[in-house]
Design a protein around this nucleic acid. Sequence first.
DNA 1: GATGAATGAGTCTTCATTCAT
DNA 2: GATGAATGAAGACTCATTCAT
Lengths: 200, 200, 200, 200
Amino acid sequence: MKATDKHQKIIQAAVKIFARNGFFNSRISEIAKEANVADGTIYLYFNNKYDILISLFEEEMGKIITNMREELAKEENPLKQLEIFSRVHLKIVEENRELAEVLQVEIRQSSKFMKEYRNKKFAEYVNIISSVIKKGQEQGLIREDVMPGILKRAFFGALDEMSRFWILSPQKKYSIHTAAKQISDFFIRGIAVSGHDFLS
Amino acid sequence: MKATDKHQKIIQAAVKIFARNGFFNSRISEIAKEANVADGTIYLYFNNKYDILISLFEEEMGKIITNMREELAKEENPLKQLEIFSRVHLKIVEENRELAEVLQVEIRQSSKFMKEYRNKKFAEYVNIISSVIKKGQEQGLIREDVMPGILKRAFFGALDEMSRFWILSPQKKYSIHTAAKQISDFFIRGIAVSGHDFLS
Amino acid sequence: MKATDKHQKIIQAAVKIFARNGFFNSRISEIAKEANVADGTIYLYFNNKYDILISLFEEEMGKIITNMREELAKEENPLKQLEIFSRVHLKIVEENRELAEVLQVEIRQSSKFMKEYRNKKFAEYVNIISSVIKKGQEQGLIREDVMPGILKRAFFGALDEMSRFWILSPQKKYSIHTAAKQISDFFIRGIAVSGHDFLS
Amino acid sequence: MKATDKHQKIIQAAVKIFARNGFFNSRISEIAKEANVADGTIYLYFNNKYDILISLFEEEMGKIITNMREELAKEENPLKQLEIFSRVHLKIVEENRELAEVLQVEIRQSSKFMKEYRNKKFAEYVNIISSVIKKGQEQGLIREDVMPGILKRAFFGALDEMSRFWILSPQKKYSIHTAAKQISDFFIRGIAVSGHDFLS
DNA sequence: GATGAATGAGTCTTCATTCAT
DNA sequence: GATGAATGAAGACTCATTCAT
């Protein structure tokens, strides 16, 4: 049995439990039970309850960032990359519902967390968007007056709010494909230099 | 309003404390101290700690909704109303930093909260956006393929993420005016029927 | 309105509430509500919660003692007086169920109470029995080896346990008359000098 | 029994503390201190404060019932068994003063307790008496008109009241032997068929 | 006298964390 | 490394009592 085995088992258990009850309403003993380890074992792999949340975040966000970069690499056109970002983001959310809930609700929403812990991974993810924008501007595809630092947040925020709706709604009103397309369309039309908007 | 409106004093104190420490890390005794009342007094006005958060949310969101409706009523053009929504939303956030933090972070933190407690006020606020969109579509200003249910979330999400940045950042990189304008511009250009986009 | 009015109203309310919930699980506010007075008013008539219980006990036991003495005075024969005691005791219990419950259960529950508060009234009531016994012995009706100090407790305890059964049982298995007769019979036969036992 | 039988240690500590202060005036922290465990440890063995009282009652009454049955088995004659019951009951009280106080005062006196919690063990103990009576009646030793359901309560009540006196009195006026003998004598004479009363 | 809003001391219970085995 | 029994600090909430009106 690899040493990382239990580490992973605990992270996965924590995702499930945190998603179900929220960080503060989750008990270490619940996570231990879900992971089939003793309470004390958790402290061999993590410093404290909070550290589970941070590790979980770092590791899972890392995977998501890598995954997203790979998908974007398949396309050259920055505007089309935005479409891909939109679709991939929502697909990740759909396929990792519990993880998405934890990343979105428990971590990003936690002001304490955000203030104390310099959230590098999160910035890294959102900065994928701004680098796409910048590239688009260099290529003359995106208007120069679009501020990448604002657009990255607006775009991410739009997808994020859509995800929240998805996570919290029992039945879905829109297909993920529809939502992803609509959102990327809004933005592509909104920022493309006239004539380069391939959507029209 | 009476000089000793304890209910209000407690709500205001709770906003301050919840914004500072988060709901779960806030103590009833801290709120009581901040409100200059005894711990027990809080329980004369609220059933429990959680009830403070709910009441706070209901009441303050109510005021915000009223405020937003009044501002929008000053303008007829739906596309321009989006611009107003953007500016007013961010202004509210700027002028009520602590409240904004609680409404944004603490209320939505708990998925349990969101699931159990049908968040009418929040839906009401976001639905202001969709009704503007629908009116715009009726007037032939907004493309028919824009889905109001998706756009309202995308637009709100964009503003919300921008707010979060604002709340958490020590120093601001963008003026509120710039951010509001950029975000509403993205969307107005993104959804307007060609020729009606007053921005171009 | 007489001054004693509220005092009595509070006592009566306390009997009801204490009987229903027990002393420790009763709230001053409940008693106040039952008595139709403000919480603070209770403190105009009683020093504290405990004082209500003591006053209640003193006053109601006083009435019971007087009542019992009057009933016993109607009969000369000590053995027959025991029969009367038995019947009257159980009748009082039956007709004042709630009061009986408080006197029996709540007052004696607290050993602290019994130790701190020298329970004169209670002793006075039980001593009615021993004085009957002594008289019976003087008249040669009751065996000399019967110890009045033991018999008074045994006789009272027998009636008391029967009462508890009565108070706690939803439906009664025995009529009060039957129970009273049986118990006095046991004792009369058990202590009478042979030949003076009028029961045989 | 393990040296560190925490369950037992806590029960014993609770007996001591409940006897001293009464259930409602006893603190979990006092019991923990008396048992030399941490406050929290108590909750590993009991659900709550009330559960300690119930467990204590069930377990200790169980032992007493077993003990009493063994003692009665040594004698065939039902009338003599009553004498034994009387003596053994008072002996148990004398030798387990604190336990007796809790069983008698804190548990049996609690009407709430008696109503909510179907007090099987207590009924079982008292029914030992009625089964002795019935046997005595079958053997023609006890009068047919004696109602076992009433006598069991009268007899138990007599012993119980005597015990209360014992528990609460600083100095004893009567020896346990005297009291036990007197009480069983009252009843044996009171219920025996003439001629079978071995006491005369 | 009467009120009832306000007080704040007091306690049960929870649960993250430790450490002897 | 793994366990899980034990710890004890911490906090939400209650309610007898007070006192300004």
